[in-house]
Amino acid sequence: MHRSLKENTSSFSLTTFSVMKTFIFLAVLALCASAVLANTCGGNCPSNDCTNCLCGTSSSYVSISEWCAKFSGWDQSQCQCIVHHESSGNAHAQNHNTNGSNDIGVWQINSVNWGSCSKGRPPCDASSNLACAIQVWKWGGKSFRLWSTCSECGAC
């Protein structure tokens, strides 16, 4: 009987170990799944809700004053304020909106505008984002009123 008890104990230890390994595996899998669902795109999507990383997972910061100065038609301080609030100058910044659209780049150009200003593609580089921003600015009556942050910058 003593030998049988020892065999049962060994069997119990192996079963317990297998259950623990399975539990740890499932816990790690759950953590990975939550990381995929809450996608920050390497920090480019600070809202944590982007469904895909349209501009990748590495940041690309530009000089806000330098890029605003590439267009002389708008008020430079308003432009700098808008860019600071929208993306902090990250050309790869992304925001996924509740209506399913995405805002991309330095000026956070909304996906509804991409067909008119960037051949339907996300304007992830600063040059194409600037070209889109100029168009959107013009559509807004040569103002930043179409940006959600315009009131914070006295630019509506």
Rank of each mutant, 00 (worst) to 15 (best):
G56D: 03
T40H: 14
C153K: 02
C50W: 13
E152A: 15
N95D: 11
S128K: 01
S116Y: 01
P122T: 03
F144T: 05
A93Q: 06
G42Y: 14
S59P: 02
R145I: 01
W139M: 08
G154L: 09
K6F: 14
S63A: 10
T51K: 12
V106S: 01
C81F: 03
I109E: 03
Q76E: 09
C55F: 11
W107R: 02
Q94E: 13
K21L: 11
R145W: 01
I82Q: 01
S47V: 15
K138R: 13
W114R: 00
K6D: 15
N48T: 07
C32G: 13
L146S: 02
S13D: 09
S151T: 00
L26I: 07
D49F: 13
E66M: 10
V83K: 04
S4D: 13
C41L: 07
S151P: 08
A38D: 10
I109V: 05
V19L: 10
C124I: 00
E152I: 10
S151R: 06
R121P: 04
Q108P: 04
C55R: 07
N52C: 12
T15Y: 05
E86S: 02
C45I: 03
M20E: 06
L37P: 14
N39R: 10
S128Y: 04
L29V: 00
I109K: 01
L146A: 01
A126E: 06
A30E: 12
F17Q: 07
C156L: 15
I104G: 07
V36P: 05
N8W: 15
C156G: 15
A27I: 04
T149E: 15
E152P: 01
N129E: 03
W137H: 04
L130P: 03
I24K: 05
S60T: 06
H96C: 11
K119Q: 08
G43P: 08
V83P: 00
S151Y: 11
H85I: 13
T57Y: 06
N48R: 15
L130I: 03
T22S: 12
E7L: 15
E7H: 12
G43D: 09
G73P: 02
S65D: 14
H84R: 11
S118A: 11
R145F: 04
G115P: 09
W107K: 03
G120T: 12
M1L: 15
F12L: 15
G42R: 12
S143T: 06
T51L: 15
N39D: 15
A33G: 10
W74D: 11
G140D: 09
A93I: 07
L5H: 10
M1D: 09
S72Y: 05
G120R: 01
S4W: 08
C79L: 08
I104W: 01
G120D: 08
F23G: 04
C41A: 08
S63C: 11
G43F: 03
A30P: 09
A131W: 00
Q135H: 05
